[in-house]
Design a protein around this nucleic acid. Sequence first.
DNA 1: TTTTTTCTCGTACGGCGTACCATGTCGTAC
DNA 2: GTACGACATGGTACGCCGTACGAGAAAAAA
Lengths: 271, 271
Amino acid sequence: MELDDEELWSIFDRRNLGRDRREQRANQRIKDMQDHGHQAPRRVRSLSRDEIVKTAIKVADAEGAQAISMRRIARELNAGAMSLYWHVSSKDELLDFMLDAVEGEEEFPPVTGDWRTDLTAAAWTQRTALRRHEWLMDFIGGRPPLGPNTLRNLERSLATIDSLGLDMVTALNVLGTLATYVMGAVLREFREMGVERRDREAAGGLTEDDLHKIVHDHVQKLRGTGRFPHFTRMYEEGIDPDSAETRDARFEFGLRCVLDGIAARLPGQPG
Amino acid sequence: MELDDEELWSIFDRRNLGRDRREQRANQRIKDMQDHGHQAPRRVRSLSRDEIVKTAIKVADAEGAQAISMRRIARELNAGAMSLYWHVSSKDELLDFMLDAVEGEEEFPPVTGDWRTDLTAAAWTQRTALRRHEWLMDFIGGRPPLGPNTLRNLERSLATIDSLGLDMVTALNVLGTLATYVMGAVLREFREMGVERRDREAAGGLTEDDLHKIVHDHVQKLRGTGRFPHFTRMYEEGIDPDSAETRDARFEFGLRCVLDGIAARLPGQPG
DNA sequence: TTTTTTCTCGTACGGCGTACCATGTCGTAC
DNA sequence: GTACGACATGGTACGCCGTACGAGAAAAAA
């Protein structure tokens, strides 16, 4: 028995039981089939759930998470805001669809069979996907992860470490640790970028030099207190812990730590 | 020369240059001092920045990040929404103050000198702080981390690994990796808890059994497709990767991985 | 044709951040 | 004592948000 993706989504109906129009429609269709032995044909007025989801992702990619508003998406579609609610029962549900759609577009490199190579590749892929859709970070992990594409990816991840012969709990711990690190790393990067963006906007009339001078003066004050020797040294060595140039290196450093640690905790290891 | 905390905040003025009333007031006070040789006395009407920040934290702790609104905080203070703007130039600035205030209340265990013990303790402390103030997760890392308490904590962290004799870049990488993992872990926990909460609310009239049955039926459908063997097995072994009971164990598993990895990458190690 | 179902969308409500400005309060100068 | 000006409060208004409600258009079914 094969199910189409629409049916795989049905788990979400538990949040909308009896109150949402899509379910009424679904029930109606079932009734129709029982009554007449054929499915009521779907018509296309112009909007469709897929189109809405795709547009929402496009807008979110271009303008960030705060641009994901029903009005904004509707405007993009030349539709009324309330029109979306026929195809999607709430903004939350729209987010569910958006998240799963993005999971669907992830392209994983082929499995090599070496767990470390495969997990490294998966981590970089995850990071890239998260960075392509900055808004993802605001919602990932926050909704039931049971869409068809999400499930498919979970399957693939578990298959990657099948060969290690771990029990299910440990396998999930390993994948979870990796995913946790990637989430944290990308979250940190985004927050840094947000700071940079805000600073750039707030700079307004100020030149680069003005800003530099303000910061410099402040650091001199801090140095004067003698209470922040490490910070002062950091500044004087010209190190910016949030520097954009070192982000890849930082990510790799941490990733290697995590993988080393996983390797050390695999069965059959010393310690 | 010793500076009070108020002055240590002044770096933030770069975002408000010339346009915010607090700065006007400050300039005025300086002018007064120059003109008359004495400081214009401060009066206490009833509101104060500290009180606003404390109340905001209280409200946020009790009701979550979305409750941090100027109106809500003002209501709590029996004040008008706009009154807050005398003490704080924008909601963003209020957040800056809130974040640093929270950094100030963190209580670190005494330093033992063993880097691994100290970093483990710091990670658990961080996690506890993040969990006590759930709203923190929405803002941490997203604002210039230059408040006095934030700086103090950075100093303390760097001092913890002083004995390892790492160069500054590596030291920051080590601390950053740990912080990244903790952020990711707590973020994941919160997102899970959010799902649980929403499910509980959405459950409404449904009993535990109803819900269980709905999920069970759905999993049976998925099993029927044969496309999700690992997921099916997970379900049948009764494993919930998001289970609340295993959160501490999960955190510890990952933390050990990270620390093992750091240990392996310290100078003077094999490999 | 008429009826039913499917789909679109205008209006309205209560929330948000905050710009602008009128108002009140009080220390101080005269 | 009175008047002034700095400090502090908060009402009103604007344009955002999600979405409940229900009117109405349009297509399909009868």
